[in-house]
């Protein structure tokens, strides 16, 4: 039973990651390769808040979200004048720099050795979220909270502005809208919520190291988004379930672990190619990336 709970927890973490990333990638057409960097920043700041500052659950979560939001402004401000491929390259640069800092700033992050023994967070200073069932509930609440917030953001006048921005920035400027402010807000909200995934991951696994937040992870998050689909809530949720369940299904096929890992990469690649050709809006999305 614990195995199924573990799968659901991982799906919940990826739902938070993809639903948050969808605001940037799916709603504003800003294809980012730096999502794992925000995920990592969120995770490391969560650990800092929980261990060094010794804060309980909610304040730790807020610290992680605020810190990640502030870091996202660095990328937002440098990327605002860049478009399309140049924007993607700047997010790639951010991802690589963040990974290098996490990997080499050993006195703070412990570099490749990672940080073990992350304590279970305490809710209201009383309830300790440790063990699989409490974590299942906690991660489900956080993923539902994220879905709720982003559902309202997407289906609001703010979401309408984002959709308009991804289609035609020039028209939106002449309609009196401030594109710079919109992009900064999108970056800040998206990355702050990604920090929730970082918090969940760090406190669930109780160990983090930079390899969990590298470029491969960014590509994996983006793959989940593209497979599920962009522009709505359903797409990222379907994508998250798909990318977490696929390797588990392969496990039951009876392939040896070494082959299953490679097969997983091949299948993801094939699915992406097939989707881009025949269903570019993904399995459940309503927007095709341009």
């Amino acid at each position: 039973m614990n195995y199924f709970f573990h799968i659901i927890i991982m799906i919940n973490i990826y739902i938070v990651l993809t639903v948050s990333s969808n605001l940037l990638v799916g709603m504003t057409n800003l294809l980012s390769l730096g999502q794992a960097a925000f995920y990592g920043i969120g995770a490391y700041f969560s650990v800092l808040a929980l261990t060094t500052l010794n804060l309980p659950l909610i304040p730790s979560l807020i610290v992680a979200m605020l810190a990640t939001g502030v870091f996202s402004l660095l990328l937002a401000l440098t990327s605002l004048r860049l478009k399309n491929d140049y924007f993607v390259l700047s997010t790639l640069g951010f991802q690589i720099i963040t990974f290098s800092v996490l990997y080499n700033w050993i006195s703070v992050t412990k570099g490749p050795y990672g940080i073990p023994g992350i304590p279970a967070p305490k809710l209201l200073g009383i309830f300790q979220v440790s063990g699989i069932i409490p974590f299942l509930i906690f991660s489900t609440v956080m993923s539902l909270f994220t879905i709720f917030i982003f559902y309202y953001l997407i289906n609001s006048p703010f979401g309408r502005l984002l959709k308009a921005m991804r289609e035609d920035e020039l028209a939106l400027i002449t309609l009196g809208k401030n594109i710079t402010s919109l992009k900064i807000q999108t970056f800040a909200i998206s990355s702050s919520f990604i920090a929730i995934a970082g918090f969940l991951y760090a406190t669930y696994v109780t160990y983090i190291d930079p390899s969990s937040f590298n470029l491969d992870e960014s590509i994996f998050i983006l793959s989940a988004l593209l497979i599920g689909g962009l522009g709505n809530i359903k797409g990222p949720v379907v994508g998250s379930i798909f990318v977490i369940l696929l390797p588990e299904i392969l496990r039951f096929v009876g392939l040896p672990d070494s082959i299953a890992a490679n097969m997983r990469q091949i299948i993801y690649g094939l699915i992406l190619i097939i989707l881009m050709r025949f269903k570019p809006e993904g399995l459940a999305g309503n927007y095709r990336i341009k």
């Binding site: 309202y152 953001l153 006048p157 703010f158 309408r160 502005l161 308009a164 939106l172 309609l175 807000q185």
Partner: peptide, 15 residues
């Protein structure tokens, strides 16, 4: 989107 009044076009107001 061309409306005069932009109330609700910020995340805070929306939520």
């Amino acid at each position: 989107i061309g409306g005069e009044d932009s109330f609700g076009e910020t995340p805070f107001i929306t939520l």
